[in-house]
Structure formats: structure tokens, C-alpha cells
Amino acid sequence: MFLEIQNIVKNFGQEQVVKNLSFSLDAKKTLSILGKSGCGKTTMLKTIGGLLSPDSGSIRLNGEDITHKKPEKRNIVYLYQEDLLFPHLNAFENIAFGLRLKNIPKSIITDRVNHMLKSLELENQSQKMPNQLSGGQRQRVSFGRAIITNPSLLLLDEPFGSLDAGTRHRMQGLFKNLSKEFEISSLFVTHDLKEAVLMGDEIGFMQAGNLKVYTDKNEFIADPETGVEEEIKFWGALAGLEKNVDLKKH
């Protein structure tokens, strides 16, 4: 397995936020994780990214134990809900940021950033400062900045949480395309049920620090804990109601 998490525990004082976390992920796959606010999703991602150290357990990436490795040495990029674009850099420089840290030759950086801008459909926005970009454009630049460094694993913490429904839908499509084009392995955390189903090759559900990964989407849908059945009932009832209204009209 590409990513193997074994028995990770993380406490804050007396509170156990992540409880005995164990799962694995194949390379070039996306595991979407559904969970309500405060269930330990962010702590889990930050632990895997090296921004928090686990109290126990181990993390293996591509066969290597990275449990105690510094975040800058892991090649795992963590993406926040906020785009966190650097306000003093334009879109081009924001995307080039990770490459400049690695002292890659300028001509290569220019080629790669221009290619990324094209993939993100932002060719004409490259010289704009973050405050001149829309929410969706900013999030795309943020994606580009993460993906261009060719990370082994991408951690996405509700990346579309602050976007409106339309932009969110477009961004979901864009992420799917980018995942395919750049062969990205990722953990996609969300509290949106539909997004979790759409984005993941595999799907998991996190509750009170425990993560359950399902073998397939049917098992996920059948589990009453996930709330999918309730959702289906709600929309089914609404559809039935609309049908009745239509019949009465005719």
C-alpha cells in the first residue's frame, strides 16, 4: 500500500481527538472522508502532514516510516479551507512558490507554471494579485501551488467549504481532472455528503475520532450512521410531494 496509517492516537490534554486511526490508501487514489465539525478530521490530516506529532502509532508513505519526519521533508502538502495565497505575490509567483523553495532553474519554473496556469484555465490572470482574483480563481491558484511541487500525497481539508454552490461544482470537476492529469494521491476531507461521494475513489466516515473506511460506496450508503439513507428519504419524499403537486395541476 502507498499510504499506511497504523494505530495513530492524538490527545489534547485529557481529550482523545484521534482514536486508534488505521487505514491505507493506494497510489493515485483519493480517499474522501466525511465527518461533522469537531470529529477530529483536521487533527488527523495535520498529524499525517507532520504539523502535529502523534502520541502513538506509525505513518508509512511509499514504504518509508515518516512518523517522526519534519513536515518539510515529507513531500505531503496540506491544503486549508482558506486559499492562503501570499498577499505580496501575484498568481504566477504564488504557483511558483514551492518550486522557488527548491531552487529549481528559472526557465523550468516558468515552463511549469505556465503549463499549470493553462491547466487551471488562469492564463490571463497570472499577473494579478490575490485581492484581484475571485474566490474560485484564488482556490485554483492554491491548488496549482500545491500540485506543481509534485507531492507524494495531497491533504485537502474542506477545500471548497467557503465557495458558493456553482463555483464548488466547477472546482470539484477541476480537481477530478487535475487528479487524473497529475496522478495525485489524496485524502479529501469534507462535511458535505454529496461531495464525499463524488470526489473519492474510496470513502470513509469519521465520528468522534474514529475512522471507518468502507469497501465500496454501497456499503457506505447502507450504513445508517453516515446519514445517506436519511438524505435519500428526504429527497424521495420531496420528489413525491412535487409529483403530487404536478398531478393536481394537470
Binding site: K46, G50, P71, E72, Y78, Y80, G98, L101, T149
Partner: peptide
């Protein structure tokens, strides 16, 4: 703090965090 963490996960060390992000901010 989030900016600092982001730079770290993008591969930047403490010195680069100061020079490229914190001082300009």
C-alpha cells in the same frame, strides 16, 4: 500560523519561511 505550516508542507525551512513569507507580510 497557517502560512507557516503551509510553507513547511511545501518544503520550506524556517529560514525560507522568514525570508519569503513572514518578513514580506
Amino acid at each position: 500560523k497557517s502560512y507557516e505550516d503551509l510553507v513547511a508542507t511545501l518544503g520550506g525551512n524556517r529560514w525560507q519561511t522568514y525570508i519569503k513569507v513572514l518578513f514580506p507580510l
